[in-house]
Simulated assay, not measured.
Amino acid sequence: MLNQSETKTIDEILKNYNYKDSSIIAIMQDVQKIYRYLPEDVLCYIAKELKISEAKIYGVATFYENFSLEPKGKYVIKICDGTACHVRKSIPILEEFRKLLGLSETKHTTDDMMFTVETVSCLGACGLAPVCTVNDVVHSTMTPEKVRQVVAKIKEEEANE
């Protein structure tokens, strides 16, 4: 159940798109920017307000890989495993992130909701392989040592906030 503040926030997003169901992708993108995922109660509220079925909302949310129905961490790390990155050893990069953060193939987000690690088919930066992004900031020619540096820098910045 949404609280009054959340309802107001979602209403503002819907208003920005004139409550048009044809803007559902943009609406969901805005919602995901706020929550870092698409909460079930928010999707149900949007369906009701746009006068479309919950099935249609979930169809869109599950069709596009960019949407998540599960909470993600503050820092979303995407490791490319496309051909160029894979042959340049992206798997050891993935394994190092998982080891450092206590994650696995089945556990993608840290308990403190600080980090989410996922693989993607391509980040479109093949010439910089192996590559990863942290909240859409590209890190090129990654190595396990660079992974340790990236994680240490983030943790240091978090400690200073």
Rank of each mutant, 00 (worst) to 15 (best):
E70I: 03
P71Q: 11
P71A: 10
K72C: 10
K72D: 07
K74R: 09
K74I: 01
K74T: 06
Y75R: 04
Y75T: 07
V76A: 11
V76S: 12
I77E: 05
I77R: 02
I79G: 01
I79L: 01
C80K: 01
D81E: 11
G82Y: 03
G82P: 01
T83I: 12
T83Y: 12
A84Q: 14
A84F: 15
A84K: 14
C85F: 06
H86Y: 13
H86N: 13
V87K: 13
R88Y: 12
K89N: 15
K89V: 09
S90A: 13
S90Y: 03
S90G: 08
S90C: 08
I91R: 08
P92T: 12
I93C: 10
L94E: 02
E95P: 00
E96D: 02
E96L: 02
R98L: 05
R98G: 04
K99N: 02
L100S: 04
L100C: 03
L100M: 02
L101A: 00
L101M: 05
L101I: 03
L103P: 03
E105R: 06
E105G: 07
T106S: 11
T106Y: 09
K107E: 13
T109C: 08
T109V: 09
T109S: 03
T109I: 05
T110D: 12
T110M: 09
D111C: 08
M114F: 04
F115A: 05
T116F: 06
T116N: 06
V117N: 04
V117W: 04
E118I: 10
E118N: 06
E118L: 04
T119W: 00
T119G: 00
T119V: 05
T119L: 06
S121N: 11
S121F: 08
S121I: 02
L123C: 03
L123P: 00
G124A: 01
G124I: 02
A125T: 14
C126W: 05
C126R: 02
G127V: 13
L128K: 12
L128F: 14
A129W: 01
A129L: 10
P130W: 02
V131I: 10
V131R: 00
C132M: 13
C132F: 10
C132Q: 09
T133R: 06
T133L: 08
V134Q: 09
N135C: 11
N135L: 10
N135E: 12
V138Y: 12
H139L: 10
H139S: 10
H139R: 10
S140M: 13
T141F: 15
M142E: 05
M142K: 02
T143G: 15
T143F: 15
T143C: 15
P144C: 14
P144V: 14
P144T: 14
E145I: 14
K146V: 04
K146L: 12
K146P: 05
R148I: 11
Q149H: 11
V150W: 00
V151H: 08
K153F: 12
K153I: 08
K153H: 14
E156K: 06
E156T: 02
